[in-house]
């Protein structure tokens, strides 16, 4: 059964800004689904619609068999929402915030403690501290407890790791993995492409449109170019030189390496490329064929769309 079915949902702000355009996606029960895209892609607008806070202009949304708009009160009982901005009460203590959310949802903290215990254990030592005085990572953990305390069947997480350091990001994703073992469907958005591989399926979204929906593996298999990586002595000089390259390719820095996706017959193109590098006096390391990452796929899809 689908936990969530979104059909052709659109949203226009102020009659001019098309925030979402014909969004269609289905999320299965128990799935960890990632919405991957940059700021301004429309992720938060979609979250606000799915959590009954904003009306779409058109389209149809079913959540656990209920109509999102007609049954919005019932929908609110079965969803949990962690918004993109810190939305707890900074002047209430950690424990008071949790109590508050439990009371609002008429939920019993003790009865649901098994669900939140792994997370709660980490913030319990600070239970008397005001929520506003917690560090960023701790705030997120408290917000997650508050979003889970009524044992929702679907959890919405809007960019829970934006601006979060790599260690805390890793911890947060470990927590998400434990939540889904409880049978809770999770929809999470992120601008970090590496997090996409931790999801069952992902939707790549940009400018209010979905560019593709599939498992991370399947998306990586759809990569059309032949992808190569190498080191360069001076990557800035290399990127400048590449502007003159006669071959059909996308090139971009990728950490300490340069990635090049060729859209050519490589048997002919590679000798040409090597010759080009030599003519341009570009020193380089070994040029290796590699499998694309989700980030490579996102770049390819966006570049292809902008050329169409």
């Amino acid at each position: 059964m689908n936990a969530l079915s979104v059909q052709k949902v659109s949203k226009v702000y102020n009659k001019t800004v098309q925030a979402l355009q014909d969004i269609t996606l289905e999320i299965r029960e128990g799935e960890l689904f990632g919405l991957v895209g940059p700021d301004g892609a429309g992720k938060s607008t979609l979250f606000n619609i799915l959590t009954t806070l904003l009306l779409p202009d058109g389209g149809d949304i079913q959540i656990l068999g209920m109509d999102l708009i007609d049954d919005y009160k019932a929908v609110r009982q079965v969803i949990g929402y962690l918004p993109g901005t810190f939305s707890l009460y900074p002047d209430l203590s950690v424990k008071e915030n949790l109590d508050f959310f439990a009371v609002m949802y008429k939920s019993d903290i003790e009865a649901n403690m098994d669900l939140i215990r792994p997370i709660w254990r980490q913030i319990e030592p600070f239970s008397k501290r005001k929520a506003g005085k917690l560090s960023g990572g701790m705030k997120q953990k408290l917000a997650l407890c508050c979003a889970l305390i009524h044992r929702p069947r679907i959890l919405f997480l809007d960019e829970p790791t934006t601006g979060v350091d790599p260690v805390s990001r890793k911890e947060f994703w470990e927590i998400l993995q434990t939540i889904r073992t409880q049978g809770i469907t999770v929809l999470v958005s992120t601008p970090y492409m590496d997090e996409a591989t931790l999801c069952d399926r992902i939707a790549l979204i940009q400018n209010g449109k979905i560019l593709g929906i599939d498992t991370p593996d399947a998306i990586m298999k759809q990569f059309r170019g032949s992808l190569y990586t190498f080191r360069s002595a001076d990557i800035f000089s290399l990127l400048n030189a590449m502007k003159q390259c006669p071959l059909r390719c996308n090139y971009y820095p990728y950490g300490e390496h340069c990635h090049i996706a060729f859209y050519e017959d490589m048997e002919k193109a590679m000798p040409q490329f090597l010759q080009f590098l030599e003519e341009q006096h570009q020193e380089h390391g070994e040029i290796k064929a590699i499998q694309p990452s989700i980030e490579d796929c996102f770049i390819e899809i966006v570049k292809m769309n902008s050329h169409e």
Binding site: P38, E159, G163, P191, L239, Y252, P253, E295, V302
Partner: peptide, 14 residues
Amino acid sequence: TSGVDPIVRREFWN
């Protein structure tokens, strides 16, 4: 570059 897409991040670094 917090939250910025992969292409613009690279333009920014350029």
